[in-house]
């Protein structure tokens, strides 16, 4: 995250006229324009935003030869339907949401042709939670503070800059008409089917404020994804954790922060989190673990696994190397 300097800058109106176009016919549960996120503005109270599963957005973009953090469509749970206005090539990655093109299944992690008049429809999630649709050159939209990511709560980003979710009759315009590069195939596409998902967490300094039994429980108990989960945060259900910190003075909160409010049930803070907060934290999930959590529906069983910043850095470098 923040790795690629070439955050999608949108395109001028003249370029939009020749970009491939899709029209929204059904908004589904939630579909949002998202890129790599908004950075350099956290001190003004502006949140990060961006694709929750940034790895899948990266793969969808990679399939088309786009910058991996170019703006795409984040489709949560399914039900989203678009009609193709211009024949072009699209790419799909992320969760399996039963995508079909004129009724024929479109597997995730592929790049595929679409012709004018065809309908691309998403059904229900069968594995994972979020699918990412990439368009040639990314979605054309005017960036605000360096990003087109939609944050509904902040009324920022998206097609009209007001942060709203995609709605019926919205016109999605690509920055380009056709992909930049040759067809590509993902050798080992991510799967979202494990029975228990391991999520790596970098322990933070404040873990020292939790009692020993709670630290042990953090890494040895199972955690379950609660239904109270959205782009701001995901609540985990399990053994109550205790700490002696009491009320803390608010400070900045990083992506993936695992905060523990007084009820002892951790909350993992994701892309649309508030920028400062005052609950004690166990640490922060790695960006790769945040992306994986973004594909975990309520009820998913989790384990938290400690990892060092150094090892995480190597994993992140390896992920970006796959996209070269």
């Amino acid at each position: 995250m923040g790795a690629d300097e070439s955050i999608n800058q949108g395109e001028p109106m003249a370029a939009q006229e020749k970009g491939a176009t899709l029209i929204v016919r059904d908004a589904g549960a939630l579909a949002l324009v998202q890129d790599g996120g908004r950075f350099g503005v956290r001190h003004l109270g502006v949140t990060q935003g961006g694709a929750v599963d940034w790895v899948s957005l990266g793969w969808a973009n990679w399939l088309l030869g786009n910058a991996v953090d170019a703006a795409g469509i984040e489709i949560t749970l399914g039900g989203f339907v678009v009609e193709v206005q211009t024949s072009t090539t699209l790419a799909l990655a992320g969760g399996e949401l039963g995508a079909t093109l004129d009724g024929e299944p479109v597997p995730p992690h592929t790049r595929f042709r679409v012709d004018a008049g065809q309908t691309l429809a998403f059904g229900q999630a069968t594995s994972g939670l979020r699918a990412y649709l990439a368009l040639p050159g990314g979605v054309a939209a005017t960036p605000f503070m360096g990003s087109t990511s939609s944050v509904i709560r902040e009324c920022l980003g998206g097609l009209d800059g007001e942060g709203r979710a995609l709605a019926v009759d919205d016109v999605i315009v690509a920055a380009g008409r056709e992909p930049a590069g040759e067809a590509r195939v993902i050798e080992t596409p991510p799967r979202f089917t494990e029975e228990t998902v391991d999520l790596e967490m970098v322990p933070g300094a404040q873990i020292a404020q939790f009692d020993g039994a709670s630290v042990f429980a953090t890494f040895n108990e199972r955690w379950e994804v609660d239904a109270r989960a959205d782009r701001m945060g995901v609540r985990l259900i399990g053994q109550a954790l205790r700490n002696g910190a009491g009320g803390m003075i608010s400070e900045g909160i990083p992506l993936g922060a695992v905060q523990v409010p007084p009820d002892g049930q951790p909350i993992v803070l994701l892309n649309d989190r508030q920028t400062v907060g005052g609950y004690p934290r166990l640490g922060a999930l790695t960006p790769l673990a945040c992306a994986r959590l973004g594909q975990c529906p309520p009820g998913t069983q989790l384990r938290l696994v400690p990892v060092s910043p150094h090892r995480t850095r190597r994993q992140m470098q390896a992920q970006f190397a796959r996209w070269r």
Partner: peptide
């Protein structure tokens, strides 16, 4: 990102 707040500054660097 650099986020000052009351007693701290949170520094997010390019890893």
């Amino acid at each position: 990102d650099l986020v000052p707040s009351y007693t701290t500054l949170m520094l997010h660097y390019d890893a």
